[in-house]
Simulated scan of single mutants.
Amino acid sequence: MKIILVFIFSLSQLGYSQCLPEISILTCSPGDKVYSVFGHSAIRITNKERSIDYVYNFGMFDFDTPNFTLKFVKGKLSYYLGIQNTANFIQLYTNENRLVLEQKLNLTKEEKSKIITNLNYLYQPENRYYLYSFLEKNCSTEIRDLLSEAGTNFSNQEIEESNRELINSHLKRNLWLRFGTNLMLGKSLDKKSDNYQRMFLPFYLKEEIANSYINGKPLVKSEQVLNSIENNKKNDLVNWFSPLLIFSLLLLIFLLWSPKPVELIICLLTGGIGLVLSLMWLFSEHPEVKNNLNVIWCNPLYLIYIPLVIKNRSHIILASALFITLISTIFIWIFNVQSFDIAVIPILIILGIINFKQLNRIGFSNLHKLPYKMIINFLIPSPSS
């Protein structure tokens, strides 16, 4: 701790000295752990004459935080800005077989002084903690904002990809994580992104920094890789056990053999997950999980099916309403209101079969009892007079 305090004091004096530091952006390649699959960004400050070489890391968090998972889901988990020795930082990522790329910035004395002053302000105990937001506030966006405040001219031109597509591009080798991520993220992720917004991902921050200017000059003056790693390319065999394959096999089995216990398990899982997604929509402070239309097909109402299936009973309105939700999901997908993971297709078919069985138990001759006008008026409200 004393070393860090001396380091901060030394930095505070650099703005008044001719002995200027080097400021670099470090980009770490993705790792195997869930929290590391998108890579990482940090700021390095070096001054050989003063033996200064430290990393400002906005991605610090404490796994031992009480109720860690619940706080993260609710958007209440505090991340913080920490300072690490650069050699230790690089060694940590080397041990995880992750490359560390350095971009040295082309800054004037005033620009360096402004960045260092802002970093020291953010490191103060009352300022260093922040609530993590996947799109708006993380290790990459904090660096982007610091560089913007120093005068970097970042483009905000719209791009063809949505934020969901940008995220999915990092999950090609982890299809189960991609499925879970797409299940949790709401329709706001399907809006077109732009060059500025996409810097919430470290790779795109690095890319934009390389192509940006600050006060009329290129922002980056040099790039180098700081470590070497083994080439451990993953075996693509893991993708054979993708959600799409597993759910398709489940659909095939369900078409041939679907006893009551299987229906109960599917209804329990679908309804239970739908309930969790609904609670996240209502109570989480993560804006990315709001307005999640996955709850239309992954509906908590499937939990009501459980006692009905056990007692061989059906409910005409419930069965019809859930059948309509599946059809609505298809139209939501077709008209790009929200994109769903392709692996949900066999799940939708399985749920359609379950609802069809419920309607068949009722007897299609009794479907005239369904209050269609009420449903149509709900889906297509008449114009007010």
Rank of each mutant, 00 (worst) to 15 (best):
I380L: 15
L205S: 04
S51N: 14
Y372G: 01
Y56F: 15
K357H: 03
E158K: 15
E263A: 07
S242R: 03
N227K: 03
I90K: 04
R128P: 03
D190G: 05
S365C: 04
K33D: 10
L269P: 01
S133Y: 05
N231R: 10
K217Y: 03
N355K: 12
E158C: 01
G272T: 09
F179V: 02
I246Y: 14
N232S: 10
I354Q: 07
K217S: 14
E149P: 00
P381T: 11
L70P: 00
I8E: 03
K369V: 11
T65D: 00
Q338E: 11
I317M: 07
Q13F: 12
K233L: 15
I116C: 11
E102K: 02
T69H: 09
W297E: 09
E160A: 11
K71A: 10
T94F: 00
K109N: 13
S384C: 00
W297S: 14
S385F: 11
E288G: 03
E158H: 08
N182W: 06
S382F: 08
I354V: 15
M374A: 15
S212E: 04
V337C: 00
I350D: 01
G39F: 03
L135W: 03
S169P: 00
Q124E: 11
S314I: 12
F72S: 11
L308I: 02
G180Y: 08
K233D: 11
M199S: 09
K357P: 00
W297C: 06
K104H: 05
T65Q: 07
N163M: 13
F89E: 02
N118C: 02
I376V: 14
F9N: 13
A150R: 12
I342S: 11
E136T: 10
S284I: 06
K2W: 09
P243Y: 07
I25M: 09
Y121R: 07
I353L: 15
H286Y: 10
E126A: 10
L251S: 03
S41Y: 04
W281T: 14
H368F: 15
P243K: 02
S148C: 06
Y79G: 04
L5R: 09
I265Q: 05
N366V: 05
S328F: 13
E111P: 01
Q18I: 13
K311S: 13
K217H: 07
L255Y: 10
V309A: 05
N156I: 13
H40M: 08
T27E: 01
L256E: 07
I354P: 00
I354C: 02
I296K: 06
L107Y: 06
F7A: 14
E160S: 08
L146W: 05
Q13S: 10
E22D: 01
V34W: 02
E223K: 15
K187S: 08
I350S: 10
I317F: 13
K311R: 13
E160H: 04
W297N: 11
I246Q: 05
L379W: 09
N88C: 02
F154I: 09
N235L: 14
I317S: 10
I304K: 09
H40I: 14
P307W: 01
I273K: 06
I353Y: 02
L303R: 07
A321N: 08
H286I: 07
Q224Y: 10
T65H: 02
V337K: 03
N195Q: 15
Y132C: 00
I273G: 10
L303C: 04
K109L: 11
E149K: 05
L226Q: 05
N360H: 12
